[in-house]
Structure formats: structure tokens, C-alpha cells
Amino acid sequence: MKNRKIAVIHDWLSVNGGAEIVLKHILALCPNADVYTMVDILPLEQRTWLDSHKIYTSPLQRFNFIAKRYRYFIPLMPYLVEQFDLSRYDMIISSSHAVAKGVIVHPHQKHIAYIYSPMRYAWDSMYEHERLGVFGRGLMRLMLKRWLHKMRIWDYVSAQRPDILIADSDFIKQRIQKSWRREADIVYPPVEFDECVYTESKSDYYVTLSRLVEYKRIDIIVEAFNQMPDKKLIVIGDGVSLNALQKMANSNIIFTGYLPRKEAMGYISKAKAFIFMAKEDFGIAPIEASACGTPIIAYKEGGACETVIHCKTGIFVEEQTSKSLIYAIDFFEHQRIDAHECMEHAFTFSVENFKKKMLSYIEIRNI
């Protein structure tokens, strides 16, 4: 692998989220790889893991005010990603939830695509966004839906380009098959446990950690605890929905805002349970909570079905409603979930397991 020239394509570098953790560990396997991305606005203090790599960006990077508003330019990105000239590389690895998988490759090159999801907003998530009013009204709504129609066509066509598709969960594997009519292998994302503190002794409160945006459904959790004034909830995170959630919450619900990772893990490690009501592609936060020995109460959809074992590492919520959550919490309080079993299960999603499985694909010369 030392003699091979490798290019790694990532949608955009703006925050250190779950996709960036995956990218970091792919690059650790390919220390001489070059990185291509639409824009790179990752703050200096968050990018030490990129220091040894040459980074190439699209024309959006040339103007700072455009780069910082890159989401407004997503309609241009299918064209822009196809302009990257990768002819000098032997292998292409894309890390994609949007356009990275769509790079043009040559017959002699091998392309492995790690997929977080087909374009969520263009496929099945479109209907949820419409219900939430994301598309607005009138002409704006019509134009956005027409654009999404075109994006679905490009998303399907570009998904035929990689030699191998790797899904980050079985849930995404099924989405890939439905949306793109392709088969994918599964390699679960790496979860970093460096600041997860295992604690068997728990305090008398529940916790959730999330970006406070509509689709995370923190509102359901708040509604449920409003109806259970004897139970305490701590909400960790910040986002556009913070003010609205604070206004609707009773005094038994505490909002901490954004917390550094170590401090957030301190709260999670001592919580009675971690609550997760979003329909996520995978969901790293519940696994981090499990590593702390904290049981999970999770909505029974999406990636949570693969990361939570019912009545062993947590409890499932059957419906995405406050009533169903209240029922699940009551059921949980009559169960005994073993903290050590939670921790052991979490470590099956370790960085080491991810690297071992990804390396088996990268080392294949003839795909």
C-alpha cells in the first residue's frame, strides 16, 4: 500500500462530526493520501489529524463568504465534484453522504465508497422535511421539490460509479438497495471511547445529548418529562431549537447548552439512562453512553436497532411519541440492565475493529 497513490474524497470539512471521525481513521490507514473536498473551513484547533495530508478544494473555497455558506451551493456540487482530476491516483476512497461518491474515475483505478446514506433530503427524508415545513410555501416549495427530483437522478447515476459500496449500518444498506439498486457491505463506524468514563453507580436523572434541531425529536423527550414531574432530565447540546424547547419545558428539565466532550461524558456516565428518540442512520452517542455503562432508551427505528440489545443494553420505544416514551421509561424502571454488559457491547464498535475491516478492502488490489 505504501507505493500506491491514494486520494480520499470527503463531502466537506466544516465540523468534527461522526463522518469526520470515520475520515480520520481512514486517513490513519492511508498516511500518504491526498484529501479532496468541496470546502475546508474546519477550525485550526480541530484539524491536527489533517496536518500531514495535502488538501484540495473546489472553487467554492476561493471566497470565504461562500465557503462558510456552502450549504446554499449544494445544487452546484454534483458538477464541482466531477471536476476533480484524479488521474494520477491508483485508488480512490470516498467518504460520502452527499456528492463525494460521484467523482469521475478511470478504468485502471479502484474506487471504494464508504456511504453514510443516500442523499437523505432527496429520498425518503424528503417527506418528513415537507411535514416540518422545511421547504416553505408557494414557488420556493415548488422549486425545491423540482431540484430534489434532479438530485435523485444524479444521486442514483453517481452511485453506480464506485467498485465497492460500504454502508455504515444495515439500515443504510437497505436504503442503498432501495434507492440505488446496489448491494453494499457493512462496516460500522469507529467509536472513540477515550473520554467515556465507565461508572456502575448511577444518579437519579435521565440524559440526552444531541444537536437541538427538529429531526432529532428532543421535543418528544421534553413532552414526556413534562408529564413526569418526579423525574429529572438533563439535555446536553445546542442548536436552533434550544429556545423553543426551553420555553416548553417544565422545571424538572435542565438544559446545559454545549459542553466539552469530557464534561458531557461525565453527565452521561452517571445517568440512570440515555434517551435517544431520533431515527438515525447509525447514532454514535448511544454507543458512547453504553461504553459508560449507561443503558439506552431508544426509538426502535434506524441504526439504534443495531446498536441496542433490548432488555440487555437498553429498552426500545415502539413509537416516536411521548406516550410511548413514557411507557418505555416505566418499563425500564422495572428492569435490571447490567452496566458491564452495556460496556462490553459498546466495544464491539471500536476503532480497532473498524480499521481491521476497512484495511481488508483497501489492501485488495483487484476488485
Score class of each variant (00 low, 15 high):
Asn3Thr: 08
Ile6Pro: 07
Ile6Gly: 08
Val8Ile: 01
Ser14Gln: 12
Val15Tyr: 13
Asn16Asp: 15
Asn16Glu: 15
Glu20Gly: 06
Val22Ile: 10
Lys24Arg: 10
Lys24Ala: 10
Pro31Ala: 07
Asn32Glu: 13
Ile41Glu: 09
Leu42His: 00
Glu45Val: 10
Arg47Gly: 08
Thr48Arg: 14
Asp51Phe: 13
Arg62Pro: 09
Asn64Val: 13
Pro78Leu: 02
Val81Asp: 06
Asp85Ser: 03
Leu86Gly: 06
Tyr89Gly: 02
Ser96Pro: 02
Ser96Met: 00
Ala98Gly: 07
Val99Thr: 07
Val99Leu: 01
Lys101Gly: 06
Lys101Trp: 00
Val103Ser: 01
Val103Asp: 00
Tyr121Gln: 12
Tyr121Val: 10
Met126His: 14
Phe135Ala: 00
Met140Cys: 14
Leu144His: 09
Leu148Cys: 00
Arg152Pro: 10
Tyr156Ser: 11
Ser158Arg: 06
Ala159Cys: 00
Ala159His: 04
Arg161Tyr: 05
Asp163Phe: 07
Ser169Asp: 06
Arg175Gln: 11
Ser179Pro: 08
Glu183Thr: 11
Glu183Gly: 12
Asp185Gln: 12
Asp185Asn: 13
Glu195Cys: 13
Cys196Glu: 09
Val197His: 14
Tyr198Gln: 03
Thr199Ala: 13
Lys202Ala: 03
Ser203Gly: 12
Tyr206Arg: 00
Leu209Ser: 14
Leu212Tyr: 07
Val213Met: 08
Val213Trp: 08
Tyr215Ser: 03
Ala224Thr: 00
Ala224Asn: 01
Gln227Ser: 13
Gln227Met: 11
Pro229Asp: 04
Val235Tyr: 04
Ile236Val: 02
Ser241Asn: 14
Met248Ile: 05
Met248Trp: 07
Ile253Ser: 01
Phe255Glu: 01
Thr256Cys: 11
Gly257Leu: 08
Tyr258Met: 11
Leu259Phe: 09
Arg261Gln: 09
Glu263Gln: 11
Ala271Pro: 00
Phe274His: 04
Ala278Trp: 04
Glu280Ala: 07
Ile284Trp: 05
Ala291Asp: 06
Glu301Cys: 12
Gly302Ile: 02
Gly303Phe: 05
Cys311Leu: 15
Gly314Met: 02
Gly314Leu: 04
Ile315Cys: 04
Glu319His: 09
Thr321Tyr: 00
Ile326Lys: 01
Ala328Ile: 05
Phe331Arg: 15
His334Lys: 15
His334Asn: 15
Gln335Lys: 12
Arg336Ala: 15
Glu341Asp: 12
His345Glu: 08
Phe349His: 06
Lys356Met: 12
Lys357Cys: 09
Ile362Lys: 05
Arg365Met: 14
Ile367Tyr: 14
